[in-house]
Design a protein around this nucleic acid. Structure first.
Lengths: 147, 147
DNA sequence: GTAATATATATTATTTTAATCTATATCAAA
DNA sequence: TTTGATATAGATTAAAATAATATATATTAC
């Protein structure tokens, strides 16, 4: 259970876009430099965000990317799910001696509910939450942490 | 977020041991046959269970494996954790423009709490829970499901 | 029409997961 | 004390997922 690179970079990409919203569109080259991500890899990572409607893009000269939704509405859970593989084909466990559909159903149900619990917690963190600390830097200048 | 083979097989191995407890030690060859798992792979999977104190083994002729703890005390969460990799070296995210320790801490905290929520749900399913349905086969002979 | 941008697809490299192979240690029974 | 049945250990191979790079193409502002 590991926070994969795709997600870690994904968060930074969206955060970067969020924090430079005022500039209009942002070029991927700039994000790549600021975030120390290879441009080519970045291009690959931003595609799912476009597809999922988190990011708009404009081609051609003076083109670039921008956030399509407000930072308050984008959560960690959503970002992670953007990179979740299609598991529709989730391999149906073969049954065997002492392992019936009944067992399988119990396990699957628990598994799914556990996943839900996981994502529910991550729904509580939005891009907006994450931005505040940096722009204001309150967290390092004071003992009082204002969120 | 996927139920990996190691875990799916792991559950079956322990369930198999649980359901044949009365016979004393069980040979891996038998488990392999019953559960359709390659003997060699099985040998590899059972090692972590031994290390974690779930399973006892006896070498030599008439040797085999047996459950070291009662099925009521073994949960799905525990089984999954047996196969969790050591993530002590969890790669410390490099900071960058607009990505501070503060952000990193927020994310890490949420992530850890989300994991906890996940495992908490899976603590509720024990090997004993899983065994009942099979040994009694009530679930397929009746409309009333007694758990 | 040309330079700056995104898009698309293919390729390579690395890591993780799954499975097999070979050799060794241990023990019970004959 | 030998022999055969078992577990143990470590190496090897195969397949799949993840991470990263490369090359060629499509759009658009100027």
């Amino acid at each position: 259970m590991k926070l994969v690179t795709q997600v870690r970079y994904g968060i930074r990409i969206l955060l970067d876009l969020a924090m430079h919203q005022s500039r209009g569109v942002i070029q991927m080259r700039d994000i790549a430099e600021r975030q120390n991500i290879s441009l080519k890899y970045l291009e690959q990572l931003i595609r799912p965000f476009k597809k999922a409607g988190f990011v708009n893009s404009k081609r051609g000269r003076n083109g670039g990317h921008s956030l399509a939704r407000s930072p308050e509405t984008i959560t960690l859970a959503q970002i992670i799910m953007v990179f979740e593989k299609d598991q529709a084909k989730q391999d149906i466990s073969r049954l065997s001696e002492g392992y019936s559909q009944y067992q399988d159903a119990l396990i699957t149900e628990a598994w799914n509910e556990a996943k839900d619990a996981f994502y529910q917690r991550l729904e509580k963190v939005t891009l907006a939450n994450l931005s505040i600390g940096t722009t204001k830097k309150l967290w390092q200048d004071s003992d009082i942490l204002i969120l």
